[in-house]
């Protein structure tokens, strides 16, 4: 029972951390390189515990993210939905990829996410963002192994405590 609770704490904590990291300011020079933390965390939980993370969850998470950091209600909901759908669809393969291969898959996923974002913003009439707009998926890809290993390690520790 307590194990379940500990896992729930880890789950909620990781999402809260992702929100805070997303909001946290960086020096202007590295600002464009900030990965989409909320997306990364969502991908991890969608791969590992699909029974908890469905499309509905992704939608709600996106609306919450829009309330906190967004400009247009529904934009991040759309982005996270697309991410969650693709991950859940290919979950059976993604799970057994080695980490470097997962990272590559994630690069494609995050680039796709940027395209979705561009479309959403284009429709609401915003101008084209600068080139640095495309940097974040690269850092997201580089950050993925660390996110993955960190959470795997934390979960393994929780399991070992039982």
């Amino acid at each position: 029972m307590s194990r379940l609770r500990a896992r729930s704490w880890l789950f909620a904590g990781s999402i809260a951390c992702a929100f805070l990291l997303q909001l946290m300011p960086l020096p202007p020079l590295v600002e464009p390189f900030k990965p989409y933390w909320i997306g990364l965390v969502l991908v991890y939980w969608a791969i590992e515990t699909p029974e908890r993370v469905g499309l509905g969850f992704a939608f709600l998470l996106g609306v919450a993210a829009d309330l906190l950091v967004g400009e247009l209600l529904g934009e991040q909901a759309l982005r996270l939905l697309v991410i969650a759908f693709i991950v859940l669809r290919f979950r059976a393969r993604l799970r057994f990829f080695p980490v470097w291969q997962q990272s590559l898959a994630l690069l494609a996923l995050l680039l796709n996410d940027r395209i979705v974002m561009l479309m959403a913003r284009g429709f609401s009439g915003e101008p084209m963002p600068p080139v640095s707009f495309w940097f974040a998926p690269l850092t997201g890809t580089l950050a993925w192994p660390f996110v993955f290993l960190l959470f795997d390690d934390l979960r393994a520790r929780l399991r070992a405590h039982e």
């Binding site: 209600l73 529904g74 697309v82 669809r89 979950r91 059976a92």
Partner: peptide, 26 residues
């Protein structure tokens, strides 16, 4: 391998419609 049952396209479409509806409304 493609986990068809895990997420149905129908649900995706419904949620996507919700998200787009929200964006338009907003």
């Amino acid at each position: 391998l493609f986990a068809e049952g895990a997420v149905s396209t129908l649900r995706l479409i419904v949620y996507l419609a919700c998200a787009i509806g929200l964006m338009v409304l907003d």
